[in-house]
Design a protein around this nucleic acid. Structure first.
Lengths: 336, 336
DNA sequence: CTGTTAGCGCCTTCAC
DNA sequence: GTGAAGGCGCTAACAG
């Protein structure tokens, strides 16, 4: 593979001059520019960005560390991040942690060694060694979707507010026994959604039945298990609140297997919409996050940090959720 | 940020000795090893892989260039690639081309400059400048899902065979007017699926009605448009064959809007399943690809190439598809 | 407008 | 067991 030296020699100039042509920096006369261009063409020269990065200390690479690209929520995030990053000349390295802190930590170590210019991270837990390490290395970092015990840029949706609205919606339909099928206890989105749920109940003067609040994984299996559990209560809840899309799908499956119709027998609402592309028949009432926008905001903020254009203090961007009422919760029920 | 020199100085050794400890190569006495380790710890030293890559000419990074991560098919591929790559100590850079050849080409240029060790590529077109460029730079390349006019490693599903089976299934149910809603003409999967469709019809002695074969984008909109078009024919088809998952969803939407029931009024089958995680109620008969396996095979092959363990001649791995019959095509119809 | 010098951080080569 | 020298390919910094 030819190097910049070869190009320079062929064009009869110094390497730095070739460099100036390649990067379009500094003054180069039109004639030498032509010659260098010709040499590049003739040799099939491809600049080596690894070498450039070593000098310039910039890799033009961002790390996107999320839990599981298989969740359409994160898929959309990944797409948004990649779009914005690519538009600004950055590449994106993708990593799936599966909510495992050790996996997250070892990814972060490698990514730091690779000298990524910045991190977009969905921390597995609220107290994250990974976050501390990144911060210690002084690499720009934006936390996505969740909050964390550290002074960092954060971009997330208003989980508390979305859950509040969703719960109010159910209350307005007459529901009083609403089960909250939440995610892991140590993830801020779980906690915030439960908080919104509690606030709505409190405001409506409905006492909280703690047995109706369950924590499990943000998975289909979690939704299935939690639904089976709450539906066995006597009396069973009249409505289920699934704290994310996978839980909702698991809940729906469990209800169907149990012969319960939605919404006739039980109402079901969820957090996170599924992309319209997947749905032949949108059915579920949800608090929809502005997912693509979230990715855009986060990436934009990170790029501004890299460019030194962001305010010095950590930013906290919170996006609203959109209540979308569909058939899964359309029935008004009597009290009791 | 401390460098290997700082570590060496702190440990009272030469940089190369520190290097030997860090990479666990060559002989180092236990006592100096301890001192170096202590120095690393004390300084919070993080090895710089950019510098290492410049020397070693290996970045331990793979490029995954696909059309759109938003399609669950590619999402699963991305997950599979990342799992295998990460297990072997490689990172993955993700790129979405949206089937645009120019986007693809500019990505490939950048990725070559970044000295990725290998490419996993879903070419936008059969005759790909990108493929030629990668081959010219002698960077290992595995083509995913599609075939291409070049001698390269390829991993794909048996599109022809899957389409053949799916069509036979419809024929066995009594369908004779089966519309083929295909993808772009210049993508091999489209062509192969149409070929399988034709073979099944020919074998059954059913004449091909060319107006029932349409090409469009592999999108929901494409499926919608094609369905509207074929359903306007007199007589309309009794069954629709959607050449991918998005086309199937678009087709389903168009049918519902037109007041047609599936399968009572029209049967519908598709290529590519949706991941079970998304489906509250699996409904569509499909030729399911072994998506994760496809990603595994492709990444495995690429890694073997990098390790010099693959046979010199280009490999062609073809995975079977699985016919999954569901309600969308369960009705037997009369002839006529 | 162009070139010289030096060095980014690491590791291969060779010597001791 | 350990180290000195040199160079991977490129570009800052400083001439001219």
């Amino acid at each position: 593979m030819p190097t910049i030296k070869d190009v320079a020699r062929k064009a009869g100039v110094a390497p730095i001059t070739a460099s100036r042509v390649i990067n379009d920096t500094g003054y180069v006369s039109e004639s030498t520019r032509q010659r260098v261009r010709a040499a590049i063409e003739a040799l099939g020269y491809v600049p080596n960005r690894v070498a450039r990065s070593l000098r310039s200390k910039q890799t033009h690479t961002l790390a996107l560390v999320l839990t599981d690209i298989t969740n359409p929520f994160w898929t959309t995030v990944a797409r948004g991040v990649e779009d914005i990053a690519n538009g600004a000349g950055f590449s994106v390295i993708l990593c799936n942690t599966d909510e495992s802190e050790s996996k997250e930590y070892s990814y972060v170590q490698v990514l730091l060694q690779k000298q990524v210019d910045g991190f977009l991270l969905v921390p597995a837990h609220g107290a994250s060694r990974s976050v501390d390490l990144i911060l210690k290395q002084r690499v720009p970092l934006v936390i996505l979707d969740r909050s964390v015990n550290a002074a960092v840029d954060t971009v997330c949706s208003d989980s508390e507010g979305g859950a509040y609205e969703l719960t109010r919606h159910l209350l307005a339909l007459g529901h009083r026994r609403i089960a909250m099928l939440s995610g892991p206890r140590d993830v801020s989105t779980s906690v915030d959604r439960v908080a919104g749920y509690r606030r709505a109940l409190a405001e409506a003067g409905v006492p909280v039945n703690e047995r109706l609040i369950i924590y499990h994984a943000f998975t289909r299996e979690g939704g299935y298990a939690m639904t089976t559990q709450v539906m066995a209560l006597m009396p069973p809840p009249t409505a289920l609140f699934a704290a994310n899309n996978f839980i909702a799908i698991g809940a729906f499956g469990a209800l169907r297997e149990a012969g319960k119709r939605v919404p006739e027998d039980v109402a079901l609402v969820g957090f996170d919409d599924l992309p319209p592309t997947f749905m032949t028949d949108p059915f579920l009432t949800v608090a929809a996050q502005r997912v693509y926008e979230l990715a855009q905001e986060a990436t934009g903020l990170l790029l501004r940090r890299l460019a030194g254009e962001a305010p010095p203090e950590p930013q906290a961007i919170v996006l609203p959720t959109d209540l979308i009422v569909r058939r899964s919760s359309e029935l008004r029920i009597g009290n009791g």
